[in-house]
Design a protein around this nucleic acid. Structure first.
Lengths: 137, 137
DNA sequence: GTCATTGTGTAGCATTGGCTACACTATTGT
DNA sequence: ACAATAGTGTAGCCAATGCTACACAATGAC
C-alpha cells in the first residue's frame, strides 16, 4: 500500500508535537518560579512536575538547544527573551482557560487541574470564544 | 536529595498516562469504523490517524494485551466488551465536548479538531458542567 | 576547615509512539 | 489460474519522557 496518508487533517493536531507542550509547561513553570522566588533550579521543577531531577535535566537540555533557556552547570535556570515570550503567551492562555472553567461552574481545584491539560489543545479560535464568554457573561 | 516528591497533585494529571489516551482514541476510532462500514482494518486506522500501518500494529498489540481488542493475523479488528464500553464512554464524552464548543460559538471544523485534544483532559466534574451548560442554555 | 546536606550531572535502562524497508498473505481482475 | 494490488507482519532504527544508581559540586553548620 505504501503509506499514502494525505489529508486526515484534524487528527494531525491530536498526534502532533507533545514535545512542544512540554516546552510550554516548562517555560511557564520556570517563569512562575522566577516570579515567586526569584530563582529557579532543576529541583524546583522536579518537585513541581513530580518527576525525578534527571527527567528535568534532559528536558532542560532540549530547551537550551531550542534557545528558550540558558544556564551554566550547577547554576540556576534563566529564560531567554524567546523563552519569556513563550511563557507569557502560555500563561495568558492558561489563565483564560482556568477562568473560563470557573465561569461555567467548575470548582477551583478541578479547574486548576483540568486547565493544565486543556490549555494545550485550545486553538486561538476556541480561546477567543472563551474570552468572549468571559467578557459577555 | 533522593526524590521526595510527594504531593504535587494537579500536575500528576498533566503528566499522566498518555498511553491511556491513545487507547481511548483507538477504541473510539475502531467503534466508529465498525459502525460506518462494518469492518475495521489496520490500514483504516493508519489513514484515520495519519500514521504508518506499523505504528497502528504496535498500538493494537498493546490494546490486545489490555483486553480491549481481539483479532487473528490478517483478519479485521474487533472490540471486546471491555473495548466497546470504553469506546462508548469515550464517544459520549467527546460528543459532549464537541457540542459544548459549538455552543460557545466555535465553528464546526475547529470544534471537531479541538474536541479531540480536549476530551482527554476533561474531568467528570468539568464534563458535568459542560452538560449542565448545554441543558440550560 | 571539614563534613553533611542539597543540588547537578552522567550512565544505562524501559516504554511509547513514530519511521523505512522488506517479506509475507489475501483478494481481485481478467 | 495467476499476476497485480492491497493489507499485515517483522526487524531495526530514532526521539521523548520516565526511572535508579552513582559520582561530583556547592552550601551551611559548627
Amino acid at each position: 500500500m505504501e503509506e499514502f496518508r494525505e489529508i486526515a487533517v484534524g487528527h494531525r493536531r491530536t498526534r502532533r508535537d507533545h514535545a512542544a507542550e512540554t516546552a510550554e509547561d516548562y517555560v511557564e513553570a520556570i517563569a512562575s518560579l522566577l516570579a515567586e522566588k526569584g530563582i529557579c533550579r532543576v529541583v524546583d521543577l522536579a518537585r513541581r512536575f513530580d518527576v525525578s531531577h534527571v527527567t528535568v535535566t534532559k528536558i532542560i537540555a532540549r530547551l537550551k538547544e531550542s534557545g528558550l533557556v540558558v544556564s551554566e552547570p550547577y547554576k540556576p535556570l534563566e529564560l531567554t527573551d524567546l523563552g519569556q515570550r513563550l511563557a507569557n503567551k502560555s500563561r495568558k492562555r492558561h489563565q483564560t482557560v482556568y477562568e473560563f472553567l470557573l465561569a461555567i461552574g467548575v470548582r477551583e481545584a478541578v479547574a486548576a487541574s483540568d486547565s493544565e491539560g486543556i490549555e494545550h489543545h485550545v486553538s486561538p479560535e476556541t480561546l477567543a470564544a472563551m474570552q468572549e464568554f468571559l467578557n459577555r457573561d
